[in-house]
Simulated assay, not measured.
Amino acid sequence: MSSLISACGSDSSDGPSAASVGKPEDNRPSRPIDACTAISAADVARATGKHVRPGNSLQVVKGISSCQYADPVLMVRLSTDIGDQEAARNRELQPVDELPGLGDNAYTFVDKGTASKQRVLSVTRGHAQLYLSSAELTLKQMEKLTVGGLKALPRP
């Protein structure tokens, strides 16, 4: 299960924060925020009704951050520069169900390449992508998380 999250934007009057420093030509942040901040343990608890421990955060590469929750098992990934490239690749690999009304482009599929048949929900906004993967959460629960997580995605 792999999911990442990055974000930009700060309304701080003290100047740009580390999370809001971006490339002005295309509004992509140069440094991602922590995926566990974009979709927090409290967010997961509200969506699932379970007590959720803080997730383990990992910055995989520049512009990509992930957060792994253990119970329920959920991976959150945010990328500031994947967007349509990964969406196109996923559509070629397996059938997807489009989810209109989330971000610029959203779809879900069951990753049959995993033993536990992970449900994946992917939302893109501009060049940014929010990606959730879990065998335990329902699509409705993942959609609830996505709505909040979209706030972390940079606006094109």
Rank of each mutant, 00 (worst) to 15 (best):
M1E: 06
S6Q: 05
S6M: 09
S6E: 09
G9Y: 01
S10K: 00
S10Y: 00
S10P: 06
S10D: 08
D11E: 09
S12N: 11
S12E: 09
S12A: 08
S13H: 11
S13L: 07
S13G: 13
D14Q: 11
D14A: 10
G15S: 06
G15F: 01
P16Y: 06
P16R: 05
S17V: 10
A18L: 15
A19G: 11
S20D: 07
G22D: 11
G22A: 15
K23A: 15
K23H: 15
P24Q: 04
P24V: 11
E25Y: 10
D26Q: 06
R31A: 15
I33T: 15
I33P: 06
A35H: 04
A35D: 05
I39K: 01
I39V: 12
S40N: 04
A42M: 05
D43N: 12
V44F: 01
V44L: 10
T48M: 02
K50G: 08
K50I: 09
H51W: 05
H51D: 12
H51G: 13
V52I: 07
P54T: 06
G55E: 00
G55L: 01
G55I: 01
N56P: 03
L58Y: 10
L58R: 08
V60P: 07
K62P: 15
G63I: 04
G63V: 03
G63E: 06
S66A: 14
S66Q: 08
S66M: 14
C67W: 02
Q68A: 14
D71V: 13
V73C: 03
M75P: 04
V76L: 01
R77Q: 13
R77W: 06
R77I: 12
L78Q: 12
S79P: 04
T80G: 13
I82L: 14
G83T: 08
G83R: 04
E86L: 12
E86W: 12
E86P: 07
A87G: 08
A88G: 15
R89P: 07
R91M: 07
E92A: 14
L93W: 04
D97A: 14
D97F: 09
E98P: 10
L102R: 01
D104A: 01
N105S: 15
A106N: 00
A106C: 07
A106Y: 00
A106M: 02
Y107Q: 14
Y107C: 00
F109K: 03
V110E: 12
G113D: 09
G113P: 10
T114C: 09
Q118Y: 12
V120L: 05
V120Y: 05
L121F: 08
T124Y: 03
R125C: 07
G126L: 06
H127N: 12
A128I: 07
Q129K: 11
L132P: 00
S134M: 03
S134R: 03
A135C: 01
A135Q: 10
E136K: 02
L137T: 05
L137N: 03
T138F: 07
T138V: 06
L139K: 13
K140P: 04
Q141T: 02
M142E: 03
M142S: 04
E143L: 11
L145T: 02
T146D: 08
T146I: 10
V147E: 08
G148K: 15
K151R: 09
R155K: 13
